[in-house]
Design a binder for these strands. Structure first.
Ligand code: NAD
Ligand code: NAD
Lengths: 223, 223
DNA sequence: TCTAAATAAAGATTTTATTCTTTATTACTT
DNA sequence: AAGTAATAAAGAATAAAATCTTTATTTAGA
């Protein structure tokens, strides 16, 4: 009502989700530039390679607080590091994986993830054949040990790769164990307290978009 | 100017991408309702379970053309089938998977995907140890055979799970083989002709969002 | 048969994200 | 040293999506 409009002083560094999702694309591109020995890169130059709008790139990068120089661009290494720091990749991001099945094991062997912030230090399962074995260098433990270990090792990030049928109950158990952020790779919409961060990566959602666009384009829509 | 504003007559059935991504969530929920024997469900009822806004559900479902009845809701089975038909799950969606590594194999064993439209009928790789073996019931073939087989079997959907380093070149080979829609599970931003449908599922992007939100919430932001 | 409650559907508003425009800074050129 | 071209940065306009509001329909109950 007239007064009071900008109460959002606290949400300064809140980048939009689309922006956050583009930042890793920039990191990969910058890594490639670094490997080629490039020192500087401009937003328009990145734009032409990545096929993004150049002003959008400038906006995206500005959320990290970095400053570019007109006529020169950004220092490649500094830019990459600034983005990584902004995303928290340099913080301690140890995670537990729950559900060491096919997808879980793929993630356990996906060591590149470490370069993007997350390090899986243990996996949990209920399958006796898997429990107390190792996958790669990662131990697979009984799910009952989750709570005690999460507390002792101060782990508060969890990756959920159990079957759909137990996704909700397992997620609740993770929360009870002190997990604060869950990367949910099941297609289930989890119902959890809203102080818990949940990031969904649903294959079904992506397949749905792919198929719909595919069939629409076949029908000859301009798109 | 002045005249000509609504040139978009052709894009009638164009649902937004957020809507398309929610449709599979509805399908899963409807399947559960069916298994419980429910006949009808209303949008507000779904909303309370899924924690969505009920008017958004109504809007989402309306893109499929289905009509609900006031005071009753939607017929559960009819609604599920209508969504599935809308998304093209009942069409022939045979796909090739390229790169039969850890992630590729997880997808090959992920038979639930068939219920969501996609059936992987062959995989392709360059690793001699894998070529001409089977994974599950799916043959793994030499990448050179991709073109001929795609033509003969009329496959035009491809799943890309090769290493990052060859993602772009492999995608180009897929396009040359007649693939029209690519589900890209690498984090690489592909540059392809824009009549090719590309759906990215980047783990990095999701990890970035998760970590940023997690660290922001730790700093005590209201979010 | 009429009334009331529930809810789908359509439309309006608000919010969010992208794209466009302008301004100002910097380095290169002559 | 002055002028010019390139580009970052800030702001405005546009477009898209989500949410809110109103209307109309339909069933259940009086
Ligand atoms: N396989 C894929 O490629 C793929 C792709 C996308 C999404 N997903 C999703 O990922 C999830 C897992 O799929 P998957 O193919 O790896 O299944 P999977 O059956 O291979 O693995 C599931 C694992 O979870 C374990 N488990 C079962 N109940 C558990 C519990 N209560 N606590 C802890 N662990 C438990 C099982 O023992 C098993 O090891 C599913 O939700 C699936 O929809 C899988
Ligand atoms: N492992 C995971 O959990 C995971 C998760 C998310 C994303 N990814 C991404 O998925 C991709 C594959 O990851 P991965 O862990 O399965 O790797 P991987 O090394 O296990 O598998 C890659 C496969 O591709 C094959 N290959 C190599 N060059 C090829 C070519 N030119 N044509 C066809 N096949 C070729 C290899 O022989 C191998 O079988 C990567 O881009 C990775 O970033 C992996």
């Amino acid at each position: 009502m007239g007064i009071r409009k900008n109460i959002k002083t606290k949400t300064i560094d809140q980048a939009s989700e689309p922006t956050l999702k583009r930042l890793p694309v920039y990191i990969l591109h910058l890594q490639e530039l670094e490997s080629k020995g490039a020192q500087y890169v401009s937003a328009p130059a990145m734009a032409s390679v990545l096929e993004f709008d150049s002003t959008q790139i400038v906006k995206d990068l500005s959320v990290t607080g970095i400053k570019g120089k007109p006529k020169v661009g950004y220092n490649v290494t500094e830019l990459r590091q600034t983005i990584e720091e902004y995303l928290g990749f340099n913080k301690k991001n140890e995670a537990f994986l729950v559900g060491a099945g096919k997808l879980g094991q793929a993630l356990l062997s996906y060591h590149e993830l470490q370069g993007f912030g997350i390090k899986i230090i243990a996996a949990f399962d209920v399958d006796e054949d898997k429990i107390d074995t190792q996958y790669g260098n990662t131990p697979i433990l009984h799910i009952e040990k989750l709570g005690a270990l999460a507390e002792r090792l101060e782990v508060n990030i969890g990756i959920l790769t159990t079957p759909n049928s137990v996704a909700q109950s397992t997620a609740e158990a993770m929360v009870k164990s002190g997990i604060k952020a869950i990367w949910n790779l099941t297609p289930i919409k989890l119902k959890l307290p809203n102080n818990i961060i949940v990031q969904d990566t649903s294959m079904y959602a992506n397949v749905a978009v792919l198929l719909k666009k595919h069939h629409s384009s076949e029908k000859g829509e301009s798109n």
